[in-house]
Write a protein that binds this DNA or RNA. Structure first.
Lengths: 117, 117
DNA sequence: CGGTATCCACTAAGATACTG
DNA sequence: CAGTATCTTAGTGGATACCG
């Protein structure tokens, strides 16, 4: 996801690299609003995601220190995902972006329809 | 870049869709710091980008109302790119994300090295 | 329940060559 | 100078089937 020319040019570049996956924003948002979630619950909160993608994105977020994965060795198995402190900070940092997009939602949607047509 | 399940689930989702291209953050950053730039100047400010990708990302940003493209019909041709008001707003909204990433840069870089290895 | 593994389609991205 | 056109490759994402 980076440009490969060594370290990042700016913080935004690095930030986009962390949160830039197709489903990551949605995962972050779900964990922020619902708190700790099991795998199955999380899947329901992110409609349309496949198990493969959900796992993949969760593993990347975990590697980046954004989400915490807690395994309970029970029958049936239970795994819970939650935001770390760093993840909560990331969510706060994304707040203004969300607000901006909400403010300009009509234009964003209009542009999107145009390139579909 | 969206999940295709209709409108966006949240603003962050929509925002990521606008700024989520591989080079868009860098383009935004360059235009914000340098002001109006010609195509060639912009290319030098975004090291490693191909002309094809630069054009493509610029066209998408233009369609989203983020950058303004001004063509001067001269010889040799001159085209200048600048941020719109909406684009400047987007840049401000990305500020906290950049700050967050800068704050956690070491962990981000560490995670990145780990999955290279 | 919470994953893995495999295969396949699609798109994003890069290299190169050419044009108004 | 500022693109366009074409081809090729790498990576992303989805469907399906199976496992502890």
């Amino acid at each position: 996801m980076s440009n490969g020319t060594g370290p990042y040019v700016c913080g935004i570049d690095a930030g986009m690299d962390v949160v830039g996956g197709k489903w990551k924003a949605l995962i972050l948002w779900a964990l922020d609003h619902e708190g700790t979630l099991r795998f199955g619950q999380l899947k329901r909160q992110v409609p349309g995601v496949s198990e493969k993608m959900l796992i993949q994105q969760l593993r990347e977020l975990e590697a980046d220190g954004i989400v915490h994965r807690e395994v309970y060795r029970e029958v049936p198995p239970r795994v819970e995902y939650s935001l770390t402190e760093m993840g909560e900070g990331l969510n706060e940092a994304l707040g203004p972006l969300g607000a901006w997009a909400t403010r300009h939602m009509d234009q964003i949607l209009a542009a999107k329809h145009r390139d579909v047509a």
